[in-house]
């Protein structure tokens, strides 16, 4: 079995909440040992629920999931000893210090007593918290908490790492540092990484393969390059100089490809064989003025758009609006 080492195998996984929609609606996925798998989707798509099931925090309603060769329902303790997890909310005790957390985590995970202290020092050093290790967590910044959380996930040298939106809310610098550490873990320690994210760039930069999830289903899966190649054609985005020209521009651009739903500009996905020069000529011929004209290579957002009919950002806003509504 491919997942016997450090892989993940999921078949027809379903998780329903009481009085709620199916958060995860029959997904299949395989993560190879030593691979970084990026799970991309808007808020509420089912990313976190999937992570909760795979990490034994939540039993599935139906379907099976094996992590490191062990069934998450029947062999929970074995799965937990193999995996390291950093959840979206860092789940730290504000009254304990960083070092206390490491000590607790190491004890719970059964790290031999004599190794606990050395190990804690190493990890604090590695995540850049050596100086803050003896301070209570209530004084940590968001970025420090995330880094501590990562250190805690690594305390027992897990073979498989689950990172649920590890960089949400981080500043660009901390984000890059987190990416470097994740890449290093895979490169130097062959750790399998299952990473959820709502950031296209993160999936693009880090992941060997990406699964795109929307409304509980995987709508696309593959390497970022393959997914983008599947969309294949670039898009052209024009910003009219005068707002009243918008419709006219949309009208003649339509002959070059199918229109894209965007808010700021007028855009089409170019038909094969056409290029920017064709557009420029048409702009001239129609006598309109363009403030900005851009040719864009396909992105994962285009993949998302092609598979779900909405942009990732749009889906995100919808999800947030829905949450608001539920709260009200």
């Amino acid at each position: 079995m491919s997942a016997a080492g450090n892989g993940i195998e999921v078949e027809q996984l379903v998780r329903e909440y009481k009085k709620g929609p199916r958060a995860v609606n029959g997904i299949d996925l395989q993560v190879a040992p030593g691979e970084i798998y990026g799970f991309l989707g808007p808020n509420g798509a089912g990313k976190s629920t999937t992570v909760h099931v795979l990490t034994t925090l939540l039993p599935p309603t139906s379907g099976t999931a094996r992590v490191g060769g062990h069934d998450v329902v029947k062999e929970g303790p074995k799965v937990r000893s193999l995996i390291g997890v950093a959840l979206q909310e860092a789940a730290l005790d504000p009254l304990l210090t960083g070092r206390d957390h490491l000590r607790l985590q190491a004890t719970l995970q059964g790290v031999p007593k004599e190794r606990r202290k050395v190990h804690a020092d190493e990890l604090l050093e590695r995540v850049g918290l050596a100086d803050a290790g003896d301070r209570k967590v209530q004084g940590y910044s968001g970025g420090m908490k995330r880094r501590l959380d990562l250190a805690l996930a690594l305390v027992h040298l897990p073979r498989i790492l689950f990172l649920d939106e590890p960089t949400t809310g981080l500043d660009p610098q901390s984000r890059t540092a987190m990416w470097e550490e994740v890449a290093r873990l895979r490169r130097e320690e062959s750790v399998t990484v299952f990473l959820t994210t709502q950031y296209l760039e993160e999936a693009d930069v880090l992941a060997d393969r990406v699964g795109i999830i929307d409304e509980g289903k995987i709508v696309a899966e593959g390497t970022p390059a393959a997914l983008k190649a599947e969309i294949g054609r670039p898009s052209v985005h024009a910003i009219p100089e005068h707002e009243e020209d918008r419709e006219k521009i949309a009208g003649f651009l339509a002959q070059f490809g199918e229109p894209l739903a965007t808010t700021r500009d007028v855009a089409v996905r170019l038909r094969a064989g056409l290029g920017l020069t064709d557009i420029v000529r048409a702009v001239d011929a129609n006598g309109v003025r363009i403030a900005d004209l851009e040719l864009r290579a396909p992105t994962l957002d285009d993949v998302f758009l092609a598979k779900t009919g909405r942009t990732l950002e749009g889906a995100q806003e919808e999800a947030e609006a829905e949450q608001e509504e539920r709260r009200a």
Binding site: T55, T56, L57, P77, K78, R80, S81, I83, V85, L87, E89, A90, A91, L92, D93, Q105, L108, Q109, G110, L152
Partner: peptide, 17 residues
């Protein structure tokens, strides 16, 4: 409080038993 604040998740994840 640990369940409310999420810390219990850490315990549930880390504890084999």
């Amino acid at each position: 409080r640990d369940f409310e604040g999420g810390f219990a998740k850490r315990l549930l994840l880390a504890a084999p038993h």
